[in-house]
Computed example of a mutant assay.
Amino acid sequence: MPKQPFDSTGVSAKQAELYQLSNADLLTQANLIRSNLVSWVNDNFTLDNGQQAFLNSADPRWIQYTAQVTGFAVENRLGISLAKKGTGSGKLVKTIGTGLECDFSNTSGFAAKGTLVFEVDYS
């Protein structure tokens, strides 16, 4: 899979590529995301210097959480989007699970739904 720019268009394109994979291959990608998010992002997206610096300096707790929820979203073929707002020099990245749900019923089985949103706020 070719590298995509790390912007809303690139994230959408990468999602489309991933969701064309077989379930087994998609699970492999989801597990790679969960086990090493930073490497997976570097392997799949073209980052500018600021994005690379931010990713390399991110708190490991945020990386761990983001890796788990992103892996879950990918494995279950849920929507993922990247939104940017503001123009300042400060940067806040939020990982927002919009209606992310995981249900299990003894009659209908497992169901995952919702959308994962990465919001980058430049303030």
Rank of each mutant, 00 (worst) to 15 (best):
L37I: 10
D103I: 14
I33T: 12
T28M: 11
S8Y: 05
S35A: 13
K91Y: 08
S8E: 12
L18C: 01
F104L: 15
K14R: 14
K91G: 00
K84A: 08
G90D: 06
G88T: 02
G90E: 07
D43S: 14
V38Y: 03
I96P: 04
A73V: 00
F45L: 10
C102P: 00
R77H: 01
G50I: 00
M1K: 04
S123G: 12
K84M: 09
A111D: 12
T9L: 04
D103Q: 15
G50F: 00
N76R: 06
Y65A: 15
K94A: 11
D7C: 01
N44C: 05
L18P: 09
L47C: 10
T9R: 11
P60A: 10
L116G: 02
D25M: 10
F45Q: 08
K94T: 09
L21C: 01
L82P: 03
F45R: 11
L47W: 03
A30Y: 04
L100C: 07
L32T: 03
T66V: 07
S105A: 13
E119I: 09
S108F: 10
E101V: 08
V69L: 07
A67V: 04
T115F: 04
D7M: 10
T70W: 11
S8P: 04
F6H: 01
L116K: 06
V11M: 11
N56A: 15
G86I: 05
L92N: 15
L78M: 10
E101W: 09
L47F: 02
Y19G: 06
S12H: 02
V74E: 04
V38K: 14
N106V: 03
L18H: 07
Q20T: 07
P5H: 08
V69S: 09
G10L: 09
D103V: 12
F104D: 03
T115V: 13
L32N: 15
Q51T: 09
V11E: 02
D7L: 03
N56H: 12
A67C: 09
V69G: 05
S8V: 07
S81T: 12
K85S: 13
K14E: 06
P2V: 11
T28V: 14
I63A: 13
I96N: 06
G114S: 03
L27S: 11
Q29V: 00
I80E: 05
Q64D: 11
S105T: 15
L47P: 10
S57N: 11
T70Y: 07
W40Q: 06
E119T: 12
G79W: 05
S12Y: 05
Q15I: 02
Q4M: 08
F54T: 06
Q64K: 14
A73N: 02
K113E: 11
L27C: 02
